[in-house]
Write a protein that binds this DNA or RNA. Structure first.
Length: 498
RNA sequence: GCCCUCAUCGUCUAGGGGACUAGGACGUAGGCCUUUCAAGCCUAAAACCGGGGUUCGAAUCCCCGUGAGGGCACCA
């Protein structure tokens, strides 16, 4: 039997990082078994419709490298994989359930239900779902209501006694008392199905063999199993994935509630936010695979090709977890360090351009070896390379900033003058030549004959940044003219304070 | 309120009765290196939620607590 799994997001307008983890696990499972990974849109809630939502989801999945074999955008019209386009099919099967005595029409309005619910709560009655009032309507009573033109929903007739057991691939058997399962709505009054019906019908006709979905679906799993049973269809294997918690660990990670870390910084929730910050897809994938699952052998960093053969549902940790964001930074940094200078330059360039930097390829490339060990997120390059950006000022320097106890004022002035002369008149202006000249100057004028303190001051003088890439690389990237201008300013500052 | 799930360092995890003085990673602290910041290397602190069982022996199995989370919609 070929494994067929699906990722079926609802069109919220973005891909949630927790959903991305579910998608990743589905994808890994499909790839491991040489099966199919299917992308389907669960868009049966008209109130929630967001324009362009499926494009955003597809873009982010593709960016993450999670390619699907069937579904949205694959060969031919997407219709079969968009639930709103299949309304007729669900209507037929909802009808089938009614005809065969597994479901009934319910004429209670939303307002009535709300009232009764409030009343139950007020009376401190144990809260249960729908009170099943319409379940016992006779055929005649039904006919009267329909003749009156009253709208209705179709509700599933949950068994009133007994137990339903789901055999979860991660958690083992989970037993539910059937009286706990409400008579859930299958078909809404707008004629569209609820998740429960659409999901079961689609999974059946799409031949889904395994359902890997979030923990929050556990409570409705027995309902789904009962629907399969009513239809006489074989239910797929269920595996309920652990939830991704918000940073406080106090609830599901969501855009709306406390997506803030201990320091109060907002934390990323949408995949696009991770991309915009400059996380690499390889890093994000690796990171996500480490949450709820682990590679083994004490290894944290691995390629998907290595991970896929080892992926087993049984190994998934059932406990919910928060995202270790700082570990993502580390991982991303690791992957950035592995990039070739050209590759990194290409990746960093869009971030700089967006910030208005006009940097030529060569200058950028020359900085990459120095940058690769410093970046956690690619966007950090913008601040790091501010001396190349549109804002030329940087930190304001005083004479005091330009001296050091090993290099007092007089010596500093002489050293900077020589440095300026070298930049202005030197035969060569490249990494080696600059290095040689600046070391020599530094060793000559510092009291301990070590270039260090001078180099530090020179770096500050040239980049105007407290934190920046190393001096020589920065000078090359900045170019002779701009470097000269900055050294001249520094000399002037020192002269003026003489 | 009812039902369900879960529980190992701060965090992510390894662990499936003896190999556990509980391993790894991130983070943190200290050190080395050093032109800033990093990177790299070295070192350190840091956990089996509690109580009962079962067993010669429990982080591992069972029960009861406790805590946390999820669900109880004409949302998914």
């Amino acid at each position: 039997m070929t494994v067929r799994v699906r990722f079926a997001p609802s069109p919220t307008g973005y891909l949630h990082i927790g959903s991305a983890r579910s998608a990743l696990f589905n994808w890994m499972f499909a790839r491991k078994h040489g099966g199919q990974f299917i992308l389907r849109l669960e868009d049966t809630d008209q109130k929630r419709e967001v324009a362009g939502a499926n494009e955003a989801i597809m873009r982010d999945l593709r960016w993450l490298g999670l390619d699907w074999d069937e579904g949205l955008d694959i060969g031919g019209p997407a219709g079969p994989y968009v639930q709103s386009e299949r309304a007729e099919l669900y209507r037929e099967w909802a009808g089938w359930l009614v005809e065969h005595g597994y479901a009934y029409k319910c004429f209670c309005t939303a307002e009535e239900l709300e009232e009764r619910r409030q009343a139950a709560v007020a009376a401190k009655q144990p809260f249960v779902g729908y009170d099943r009032r319409c379940r016992t309507l006779t055929a005649d009573e039904n006919a009267v209501r329909e003749a009156e033109g009253r709208g209705y929903v179709i509700r599933f007739m949950a068994p009133l006694a007994g137990e339903t057991i789901i055999n979860d691939a991660i958690r083992g058997p989970i037993t539910f008392h059937n009286e706990q399962i409400g008579d859930m709505v299958m078909l809404k009054s707008d004629g569209l199905p609820t998740y429960h019906l659409a999901n079961v019908v689609d999974d059946h006709f799409m031949g889904i063999t395994h359902i890997l979905r979030a923990d929050e679906w556990i409570s409705t799993a027995p309902l789904h199993i009962n629907i399969y049973a009513a239809f006489g269809w074989q239910a797929p294997v269920y595996a309920h994935l652990p939830l991704v918690l918000d940073p406080s660990g106090k609830g599901k990670l969501s855009k709306r509630t406390q997506a803030f870390d201990d320091e109060g910084h907002e934390v990323f929730v949408k995949v696009e936010e991770f991309r915009d910050a400059g996380y690499l897809p390889v890093a994000l994938r690796n990171f996500l695979a480490n949450v709820g699952w682990s590679f083994g052998e004490d290894r944290e960093k691995f390629a998907m090709e290595e991970a896929i053969p080892r992926f087993e549902l049984e190994d998934i940790n059932p406990a919910p977890s928060r995202l270790p964001y700082s570990k993502l930074d580390w991982l991303n940094g690791q992957y950035i360090q592995e990039m070739e200078p050209e590759e990194l330059a290409r990746a960093v360039r869009p971030f700089l351009e967006r910030a208005g930097y006009a940097v030529n390829d060569e200058a950028l490339r020359s900085l990459m070896p120095a940058m690769s060990v410093r970046l956690k997120q690619l966007r950090e390059a913008v601040d790091f390379l501010a001396f190349l950006g549109p804002d030329e000022d940087g930190v304001a320097l005083t004479a005091e900033d330009l001296t050091h106890k090993k290099l007092p004022h007089t010596e500093a002035l002489t050293a900077f003058r020589e440095a300026r002369d070298f930049v202005r008149d030197g035969e060569r202006y490249n990494l080696e030549a600059i290095k040689e000249a600046f070391y020599a100057i530094g060793e000559r004028y510092t009291s301990n004959q070590k270039a260090g303190s001078f180099l530090g001051l020179a770096r500050l003088a040239v980049t105007r940044q407290k934190v920046s890439p190393p001096l020589f690389e920065s000078m090359v990237a900045l170019g002779r003219q701009r470097a000269l201008a900055r050294l001249e300013e520094v000399v002037a500052i020192l002269e003026a304070s003489g």
